[in-house]
Design a binder for these strands. Sequence first.
DNA 1: ATCCTCGATCAGTAAAATGCGCATTGGACC
DNA 2: GGTCCAATGCGCATTTTACTGATCGAGGAT
Lengths: 218, 218
Amino acid sequence: MRILLIEDEPALGDAVATHLKRSNHAVDWVQRLDDADAALRAVDYGLVLLDLHLPDGRGLDLLRQLRKADDKRPVIILTARDQIRDRIEGLNAGADDYIVKPFDLDELVARILAVQRRSAEKASPTFRAGNLTIDQAARKVWRDGDEVQLTAREWALLECLAQRAGATLSKAQLEEALYAFGAEVESNAVEVFVSRLRKKLGADAIHTVRGLGYRLER
Amino acid sequence: MRILLIEDEPALGDAVATHLKRSNHAVDWVQRLDDADAALRAVDYGLVLLDLHLPDGRGLDLLRQLRKADDKRPVIILTARDQIRDRIEGLNAGADDYIVKPFDLDELVARILAVQRRSAEKASPTFRAGNLTIDQAARKVWRDGDEVQLTAREWALLECLAQRAGATLSKAQLEEALYAFGAEVESNAVEVFVSRLRKKLGADAIHTVRGLGYRLER
DNA sequence: ATCCTCGATCAGTAAAATGCGCATTGGACC
DNA sequence: GGTCCAATGCGCATTTTACTGATCGAGGAT
């Protein structure tokens, strides 16, 4: 998991980056907020370590901005002992944890692991449709609470229907979603997979709209 | 989770106790330090709310005493706005958080939840999946109680699967996690390491979902 | 108009044929 | 020794084919 470290003090930043790398984490270290901004846009970090006092702006604003954009990636705040207000503002702004400088590097690693574990748990926005529960991130489906094993195509079809639950999708649309660009299929593939899904998920899971396509009721 | 409230002001104590009870917490309210002492001995509290100015002694001493006895239960300090010294001393003495009077009761509840979450995290850093026991912090794995030695890549792969145990992860996702930025691998590296992990951890440790990826059962 | 019949089209299912995705191995490279 | 790559063979998901069943509209009889 790749980590973004935002810290302007060279000594501390270097120490943290080195130690984390030694603990087998991939770390990018930036010293300014606008660099952080650019890095976040370019790379898919799994976690952010954020010092709140930076030369070109308030770290807190970066955090608020992230959360406002519905970005739920874990953020751990690095704060000095006397900046107690920051800590609390940080937590209120959506930080996942904080650690007080000067801190033990092993403790930081422990916190990182803890936060990652926690965020891995919460980050599964499952949604329900009839007697089905669908977890897109985990690629899982439950029927009446029992997990159902799907094959790749079956899942792709269900995912497509679920993403636009309530809407009727034409067979052409579904075909497009199933077969990555160009790979035309000249058969009733969609119907075949609808059939198999119905067998696994229940006959009334997918509603056919004759002449138009299929629909997953919300 | 049962909470001990140590607060001598009747109006505040009553308000806090009532509000917490309404938020489905079990609360015991004491007004004196020796009562608190007795209560702590008698009941297994999960969290302590501590006013530092009490008629029969300093709350700080109670806190220090707890920490000295290696008691790591979370403590939140209740303090007046002008008593800044107290807050800092409190944190140094091992408090987990503090809140300034007069405070919003809902904020107190939020703090309590945050602190509880954090302390629950510290407690059990190891987790189980089937016949495997995985300690992320120590980077160790046991199979049926016997420790298994893993290489760096093997561990990285297992860690990734473990962090999202139960979810199906695509090979692309696993590759991304294994190879920090840029170091693209154009081979069946993931498959190879899955194979080696299976050899070490048992054939059924990692489940393949054909066409989708791999999954570590919870 | 209403009802029924019939044919045509579209949808559902089963089962066989195909070919891709995966596991595994041995050897090269660092 | 750890990691990465290439080649092999196998098994299962996919795809196709072909058949059965469902639905609808047209048109004739009442």
